[in-house]
Nucleic acid binder design. Structure first.
Lengths: 332, 332
DNA sequence: CGTGGGTGCACCAATAGCTTC
DNA sequence: TGAAGCTATTGGTGCACCCAC
């Protein structure tokens, strides 16, 4: 920058004004400066500017698993809302490891990022977020609620999901025995959904299957392995299964398919949760309780903006879940 | 930092040394500084440090589509290699839009990132990368080759993929009519694979199906829509189809499944490319030419390190593609 | 007289606010 | 008033140097 200035006999301040598109410089100098900058191969140093202004446009998305399509869809929504107002969104992957998460969060704080949206790693406790909280970095937690830390939280309405699932499986499909399949034991969504689901089932006088309701790591592979093991052991699946996520439904449906237990008349009714983009493409197509991940991402973006003290338009509440019925539950 | 120093009657330099874990300070002062920093809520400013040292540990992954599982798997490999040597990897999503890609790349240059790994947005030309090239920011391009710009490139061996596909469909399954299904017209992988595939087919005296070899946007939805339209129009699919990616195979298989044209004896043999994590879980399970996306990511990471002038161990060549035969081609 | 422990100051690349012509 | 300059400031680091055992 100093080179550009001296080369034109101007001061650095003037060049700075040009770089920031200030109206305080004449068109003539602006053009001259821009040309000279181009000629000298000068590139603006955003980092130095940030240091001086104590501002930054980087927002970090700290996610446990980029491969999970749900997470990918959420990131789209966040980016949409934040990008619109000039923020620069980047995703960091914790791979659900606490120490990596801690390192990433520390790095974002030390880089003076503008904000953070995070799905906490699985075993996170309040402890993992006190430093973040104290640093004052605007933060929104997503999906997995962490007790004992005062950070804004955005999540789906787990109770409504549980109730909807029960309603559909029991009232529509007449299932007399049900289970909640999979999800990580510690993850708050599992807990909330399972409770509401089970309660509704009990009220309807429907049997609960414990064996098929054990926690399972939230990947399609793990779901497949678990279901295959149960079936091989001779366990009969319940008439209706609410899966922790579409991703897990993929694995379960595959295992049931191996035993011709899904998609046909009289077989098991499987319901996923999230209604991912891919689910309609599955065979059989996956019925799902839509949680609108992209919309959830948008909400996160807005909540973060509010947290940063900026004016926000648009809703700050996630859309209510709804059943998208397809073949895996027997609707089509 | 200055507060911590004065509060202890030390100089800033000493505090700086402590923050950097330098062995030049006594244990006593180190402890005192750390305690005081904690007490005052001081947080290190990495951005300022970067400004001074002209170094940065942020590496940007600039990707066209985070939802694409292939991309997600690649990112895992990059992160693994780069994380190991202390870099901090973050993913930026261009959504395959040129202007967004340009903005992101500019931002990374202006932030003085340590390096970039990018899958260029679809319609990218050399023009989109000249500024990046000139800036000297270490860059690796991945998967989509861009003519006319001198940037290291990592990609799969497209010719080998095409040959393998032909070999499997023709020699193993005896297909007498084949097609290369989908992929974006402009994407270099499609061009290389299709050429080798078609050439091998021609040499074997096998018919080529033009109708089923048209370009299709690289999403499962688009693949499904395209195949459904062809089938509805009465077009008979060829005996063997090599799909541009597993992701597209999902859509094609679904469409063929609607017409009972896949997975059974005498039906169409479908081969995907990439062997994504999910493919074994599909119904029918997707046969695929494995390109090892995670390994590809690792290679990118290593090439980038070399580009930055750092010592690298491990291979800098992608693993050779190989066929993983499952049900969609009729092997199982 | 070496050396462990620490200091002082210029410097990185920008911006803010004020002054000057 | 419009255009440009001056200078302190942001939060660290590199390096030369100092001083007391």
């Amino acid at each position: 920058m100093i080179d550009v200035a001296t080369s034109l006999g101007l001061s650095r301040a003037t060049v700075s004004l040009v770089m920031r598109n200030s109206p305080l410089v004449s068109e003539k100098t602006r053009v001259a400066v821009l040309a000279e900058a181009e000629r000298l191969g000068y590139v603006y140093n955003q980092a130095a500017a940030n240091l001086r202004t104590q501002r930054n446009d980087l927002v970090g998305l700290v996610m446990p698993d980029v491969i999970n399509p749900f997470v990918a869809e959420v990131s789209l929504g966040v980016q949409e809302v934040l990008g619109e107002v000039g923020f620069f969104v980047m995703i960091a992957n914790t791979v659900d490891r606490l120490e990596l998460q801690a390192q990433i969060l520390r790095s974002l704080v030390e880089h003076r990022a503008a904000g953070v949206v995070t799905i906490p790693a699985l075993t996170s406790t309040a402890e993992a977020f006190v430093a973040l909280r104290r640093s004052g970095l605007p933060t929104v937690t997503l999906l997995r609620a962490i007790d004992g830390v005062d950070l804004p939280f955005v999540g789906t309405d787990e109770a409504a999901i549980g109730r909807l699932g029960a309603e559909h499986l029991i009232d529509v499909h007449g299932c007399r025995r049900v289970a909640y399949f999979g999800g990580d034991q510690l993850a708050s969504p599992r807990i909330g959904r399972l409770r509401a689901f089970r309660q509704a089932a009990t009220q309807a006088g429907v049997d609960w299957d414990d064996e098929w309701s054990e926690p399972v790591e939230a990947t399609a592979d793990a779901a497949y392995a678990r279901a295959t093991r149960l079936l091989a052991a001779g366990s009969r699946p319940p008439a209706g299964v609410l899966c922790h996520s579409d991703n897990m439904a993929y694995g379960l449906v595959r295992a049931l398919g191996d035993h011709r237990l899904v998609g046909d008349h009289g077989s098991v009714s499987v319901l996923g949760i999230d209604d991912l983009h891919q689910s309609a493409m599955w065979t059989p197509s996956i019925s799902s309780i839509a949680t609108d991940p992209v919309g959830l991402g948008r909400v996160c973006g807005r909540v973060l903006l509010a947290e940063m003290g900026l004016a926000v338009e648009g809703t700050r509440r996630p859309t209510a879940p709804e059943v998208h019925a397809r073949a895996s539950c027997g609707c089509v």
